[in-house]
């Protein structure tokens, strides 16, 4: 028997070091965590916080305009507010008019479905937020 073979036999006699009994479970727990981490998460284009900010901003703007118009009903208005009075709101409403025109051409069934789907998406969004809390 050669020297190498002898050493191989000697080495094989050394008892193998064993990992802990729950080694596989520990690894698989970490693997499952990894899987959860990498699974796709649905993210809306505009977050709930974003929508809140937009709504708040619009509300403030609306209230502000209403208050200012009440304070200065006509005639003597500070020059700073002139651009506000000269605003032609019909220009802003043009896209809405186009949308309304487009929607009126659609069938009522399709519109009902569209509204239903939109509502479902909204409910889903809100419920997901509540569940997370």
């Amino acid at each position: 028997m050669s020297k190498q073979d002898k050493l191989k036999d000697f080495m094989k006699e050394i008892p193998r070091e064993e990992p802990s009994l729950d080694f596989t479970r520990k690894v698989m727990d970490r693997v499952n965590l990894e899987t959860k981490k990498t699974s796709p998460v649905y993210r809306p284009l505009i977050s709930m916080r974003g929508w809140k900010r937009i709504t708040f901003g619009m509300l403030i703007l609306g209230i502000g305009v209403a208050i200012l118009r009440n304070y200065f009903p006509g005639g003597e208005t500070p020059s700073i507010l002139h651009p506000l009075y000269s605003l032609d709101l019909t220009q802003f409403l043009k896209p809405f008019n186009l949308v309304t025109k487009f929607l009126s051409n659609l069938s009522p069934t399709f519109l009902t479905c569209l509204v239903a789907v939109s509502l479902l998406i909204m409910v889903d969004q809100v419920s997901v937020r509540f569940i997370r809390r």
Partner: peptide, 21 residues
């Protein structure tokens, strides 16, 4: 199927641990 990783862990855990040791 992440669960299929378990047999691989079971198969190579001794070698991995022994080498690390």
């Amino acid at each position: 199927d992440s669960g299929s990783f378990a047999p691989l862990v079971e198969r190579y855990k001794h070698l991995a641990f022994s080498l690390s040791m």
